[in-house]
Nucleic acid binder design. Structure first.
Ligand code: MN
Ligand code: MN
Ligand code: ZN
Ligand code: ZN
Lengths: 140, 140
DNA sequence: CTCGTAATGCAAAAGATTCCCATCTCTCTT
DNA sequence: AAGAGAGATGGGAATCTTTTGCATTACGAG
């Protein structure tokens, strides 16, 4: 259960941490901002401060439980880490986010980093475009 | 000269715009924040407000004169658009930025977007790693 | 050169995230 | 089970970046 994950990260098992982790595990959509988490918790009747949400998410990120993304929205979004890396496609019209993983690209990135004398530590690949969802505004 | 670029963008040729464009053309390093631009202008004795710097950079971006990047530093950085797209490798230790362009990756991105029913509009690929510069802290 | 509109500077406002600190609460020990 | 101590929390203040409002100024068409 969650408690072990938290404990394993060297963090005390506190109510805010458990609730936030639970929420991320059940979260739809998968990619949420700190503010989103804060509001969702409020709606569930949990009295957890926004500062705590930010702190916990940052700690979870450091512990590898959560991944932080900087899409071009002015604020970070977080998602539960499911072990397997992936990148994102974001609809610039409706905000819809899809995920993908491409071995070819992953491979080339490592090579490129090496060619430039860098030891790759991480990378961020975000494709922006217009989706074809009928519900998407902007499809005319 | 710069004036034509600015005029072509449908903007009045004003002193702030000319000075900012000049600065970006001569800028070392190539990737600078709004605050960087503001301070560099101050040092040159130009009395240009920070709000104007933000406004002009945003207008230049809309006009395609400048490109904005969101590296993970908490603030955007801008660079003069040189016509040819490229991506970035950023050293997480010293902040050094290198540029690259990989046809294979570019190609795959378009395909992936299409496979997901998206019309690609733009994309952002940033590799984070540790560089091998002798001046880089953290190389032990 | 004159006028009207767009642009600018400054200060205030916003939005996101972090920091402070007095007050709680886990967890480890008795 | 109770106590102590380190660590965590909440709420507000503080920071930082970026945007906005507005009175004033400067382009540039005529
Ligand atoms: Mn994801
Ligand atoms: Mn560049
Ligand atoms: Zn859409
Ligand atoms: Zn470096």
């Amino acid at each position: 259960m969650d408690n072990q994950e938290i404990r394993k990260a060297g963090l005390k098992v506190t109510l805010p941490r458990v609730k936030i982790l639970e929420l991320l595990e059940a979260s739809v959509p998968r990619h949420v901002s700190a503010e989103d988490v804060y509001k969702m918790l409020l709606e569930k009747g949990e009295e957890i401060g926004l500062a705590t949400v930010y702190r916990v998410l940052t700690q979870f990120e450091a512990a590898g439980l959560v991944t932080r993304h900087n899409f071009e929205e002015g604020h970070a979004v977080f998602e539960l880490d499911r072990g397997e890396h992936h990148d994102h496609i974001v609809c610039v019209l409706c905000g819809k986010v899809e995920e993908f993983m491409d071995a070819t690209i992953e491979e080339r990135q490592k090579e490129i980093a090496a060619e430039h004398g860098f030891e790759m530590e991480d990378h961020s690949l975000i494709i922006y475009g217009r989706c074809n969802k009928p519900s998407c505004p902007g499809r005319e």
